[in-house]
Design a protein around this nucleic acid. Structure first.
Lengths: 247, 247
DNA sequence: CGAGACGTTGATCTGATTCAAATACAGTGG
DNA sequence: CCACTGTATTTGAATCAGATCAACGTCTCG
């Protein structure tokens, strides 16, 4: 459960005993092979998944095979707190690399909420973040050029990976095919390739065996007007305001 | 507070006394002129808004003026339940037509949750719906052609307006400029115009003084592979599962 | 070492943008 | 009621960003 604790504590300054509560939550772990679906559209899981290792994507496929990646999921990411509504999900989640998830049963999360743990606030925060990322995805794909989209996505992924300790200050293990990047950015993979090569030729980035290095961060930021507002990095309150009400 | 009740009861079969609880919630109403901002990026509102009359949009503007509409908001729509985190919002909301909102203070909503009212479940449901709409927006703009995007958006807006009683079986008052549609679909307004005119020329739709009529629904659906899964129309459970836990 | 998946590059094509100009329309003030 | 103004719609022509098609290189791994 380390990655979750790490991620949540980035925001919420959790105490040690919170770490204990978290580890008690774990119901069981599960592993998935690259390309395997973790959740399939139309299912009702009744469970909450936390990514422990590896990368995953949320995606939707149209009838004719066109597919759109909604967002990338890194260690520490959670899906889905909407489980409390007993709803069927409208999208799928697939493992990109080998993925290990911790499966938490919904009730254990709920008891955290009931107890007023600061973990609950952190969890809720994580859903706010995710929505922010989704909205940014809409803007990026709707109103930015291919070059901007690629640069922006690189910066976002690096930042997110960095938070969970999966990236160096300017480098990032990016186990993601150009096809997947294309499906995330609404581009053809051929064009993604050209943009990447051109960013590389200009010395903004470098890619070597799955490790991407940001060589000129400021130029990369300038190339896309990157800002981090949408990641909501300021962190959640210690407790959800409805907990105060409950007292 | 009618539109909210109408919308929530579409899903949740609310009882009469729920209607009363709802009307007691209203703190005060507020009106906005077309084009006026209701919420501005960066603010902390501490309040929940419900649209009573009129249309609004959630949007984000880039530094250079490009703007992206995230989604349209109709009577009965709510923003934002994330207020409980005391977060700053990462986007703005603007009135499209003259808009009346009911402003509810966050605490009143929270007490509904605490009471275990089925209204709470319906509210939560509405956020699940909204996320579904956001995801669909990503797919639409990322992997569909201009023609598909336009057809798809028309069908979605008609359906949503219908649910809150703001549309006939095949007609829809659409007080939205082509510029705004373009900003929602990530297209130029010139192209939106061409697509609309072509759909009209082919007899799929008709537009007359702000009223759009769907003349050939089945062809329109076929033109974009429209499905309504993302609207989560099946409705919420009567109560949120964490209420059961609280007992 | 052979197969399949991914990456790279060139040539060509096209859906959508941009630029430009004309028309319709709604609201305002005289 | 009409002229005036600004905003939205419509249409054409030129252009371009990105897609498609096609071929080849490269890596991985069984």
């Amino acid at each position: 459960m380390q990655p979750l604790f790490r991620r949540l504590s980035y925001y919420a300054k959790l105490a040690d005993h919170d770490g204990e509560s978290l580890s008690k939550l774990s119901v069981r772990d599960h592993s998935y092979a690259p390309g395997e679906d973790i959740i399939r559209r139309g299912e009702k899981t009744g469970q909450v998944f936390v990514i422990k290792h590896g990368w995953a994507v949320r995606y939707i496929t149209l009838e004719d095979g066109r597919t759109q990646v909604l967002n990338f999921m890194l260690p520490g990411d959670i899906f889905d707190l909407q489980v409390f509504l007993d709803d069927t999900v409208d999208h799928s989640v697939a493992a990109v690399t080998k993925v290990t998830t911790t499966v938490v049963n919904a009730d254990s999360i709920l008891s955290l909420f009931a107890q007023g743990s600061s973990i609950a606030a952190a969890l809720w925060w994580s859903t706010v973040q995710e929505e922010g990322i989704l909205r940014e995805q809409i803007v990026r794909n709707g109103r930015r050029t291919a070059r901007e989209r690629v640069a922006h996505l690189i910066l976002e992924l690096h930042r997110r990976a960095r938070i969970v300790g999966a990236a160096g200050p300017d480098s990032l293990e990016l186990p993601v095919s150009q096809i997947l990047i294309a499906d995330a950015l609404g581009l053809s993979f051929v064009h993604v390739n050209r943009v990447l090569r051109s960013l590389e030729k200009e010395g903004l980035i470098k890619k070597n065996k799955g490790v991407l290095t940001i060589l000129a961060r400021s130029q990369l930021i300038e190339a896309c007007g990157y800002s981090e507002e949408h990641l909501h990095l300021d962190g959640p309150p210690r407790r959800l305001s409805f907990m105060a009400v409950a007292e």
